[in-house]
C-alpha cells in the first residue's frame, strides 16, 4: 500500500477533501479510500500465505542447508527478532506521541508559538539526517542496545507527528474558537472540546506515518545491537542466501503493512462524526 509514503501535505489534503464532500457521490479517491480498508488486509493475507508456503518449502531444520536452517529457525531467531522489532517500534511510536502531541499543542499557543519555526527546524533535521548516521550519533552518545535505538527513532519520527499536530490545530476555523470563547469556554475547554477533536484526523495521519517509519527503521536496530528482523536480512546478505534475505524482508514488509492498516482503521474510526 503506497499510502504509507504519501507526503504529509498530500495526505492532509486528501483527508480534508474526504471530509468536506461526504454528501456527494464518492469520488474515485474516496472509493479507493473505502476499499483500501478491505483490499489491504486481503493483500496482507495473500502475502502472508505466500511467505508461509515459501518458508515451509525451504524445509528449515530438515532438508535446508545448515546455515539457512540456523538463520531462519522460528523459536530461536525469527520469533525473538519479531518481538524485538515490534517492541522497538511500539516504544518509539508511543514516545513520539507522548512528546510530539503535547509539544505541538504547546507550540500553537500564544507565546511559545514564536519559537515554533525553530523547533520545527530541529525536528526537520532529525528526519533530514541519514538514518544510519543518526543511529551512529546516538550509539556514540548512549552506547549499544535497544534503548539507544528507541531514542534515535523518536528523534527520527517526531517530525510528522509534531507537524501534523500543529497543522491540524491551526487548521481549525478561527470562528469556532471565537464562538467558543465568546460563550465563556476557557482556553482549555476550547482545546479539549473543539481544537483537538477536530485535529484528530490530521494528528492520527501523522502518527500512522511515524509508526510505519519506525517499523521500517527498526530494521537497522541490529547495527547497534538492538536486534530485530534486520538480523535475518543482514544474515541473508552476508551468507549470500536469497531464501534468508527474502523471508526477512517479506516479514518486515508484512509487519509494516499490517500496522499501516491498523493506522488506516484508526483514522477511519477516530474521524469525528459530522465532518
Amino acid at each position: 500500500m503506497s499510502e504509507a509514503v504519501t507526503p504529509l501535505t498530500a495526505r492532509w489534503r486528501h483527508g480534508r477533501k474526504h471530509s468536506v464532500s461526504t454528501v456527494a457521490m464518492p469520488t474515485g479517491a474516496q472509493l479507493w479510500h473505502r476499499y483500501s480498508l478491505v483490499l489491504a488486509p486481503a493483500f496482507i493475507a495473500g502475502l502472508g500465505l505466500v511467505l508461509w508456503y515459501y518458508y515451509n518449502s525451504l524445509g528449515v531444520g530438515t532438508i535446508a542447508q545448515i546455515q539457512v536452517s540456523s538463520a531462519l529457525d522460528w523459536e530461536t531467531k525469527l520469533k525473538p527478532q519479531l518481538i524485538q522489532h515490534l517492541t522497538i517500534a511500539a516504544w518509539s511510536t508511543l514516545l513520539v506521541i507522548l512528546v510530539a502531541v503535547p509539544l505541538g499543542v504547546l507550540l500553537t499557543r500564544g507565546g511559545p508559538r514564536r519559537i515554533a519555526p525553530a523547533v520545527l527546524a530541529v525536528a526537520n533535521s532529525g528526519q533530514a539526517l541519514p538514518a544510519y548516521g543518526l543511529l551512529i550519533i546516538f550509539l556514540a552518545a548512549m552506547g549499544q542496545g535497544g534503548r539507544t535505538v528507541v531514542v534515535a527513532l523518536v528523534v527520527y519520527a517526531i517530525l510528522p507527528v509534531l507537524r501534523n499536530t500543529m497543522v491540524g490545530l491551526d487548521g481549525v476555523d478561527r470562528s469556532m474558537l471565537e464562538a467558543g470563547r465568546g460563550m465563556g469556554m476557557t482556553r482549555m475547554q476550547t482545546l479539549l472540546r473543539i481544537e483537538l477533536p477536530l485535529a484528530v484526523p490530521v494528528i492520527v495521519a501523522g502518527i500512522r506515518t511515524a509508526m510505519v517509519l519506525n517499523i521500517g527503521m527498526a530494521t537497522l536496530a541490529f547495527l547497534i545491537g538492538g536486534g530485530g528482523l534486520g538480523i535475518t536480512i543482514s544474515s541473508g546478505l552476508k551468507l549470500n542466501q536469497d531464501a534468508v534475505l527474502l523471508v526477512g524482508a517479506i516479514t518486515v514488509a508484512l509487519v509494516a503493512l499490517t500496522f499501516d492498516w491498523f493506522g488506516a482503521l484508526a483514522e477511519r474510526f477516530l474521524h469525528p462524526r459530522g465532518l
Partner: peptide
C-alpha cells in the same frame, strides 16, 4: 471573563457552529 461571557449571548457573522 469566562464566567462573564456565560451570562451574555454572543452571535457572530461566521456563526462558528462546532461541526463535530
Amino acid at each position: 471573563p469566562d464566567q462573564l461571557r456565560r451570562r451574555i449571548g454572543y452571535v457572530i457573522q461566521q456563526i462558528g457552529l462546532f461541526p463535530h
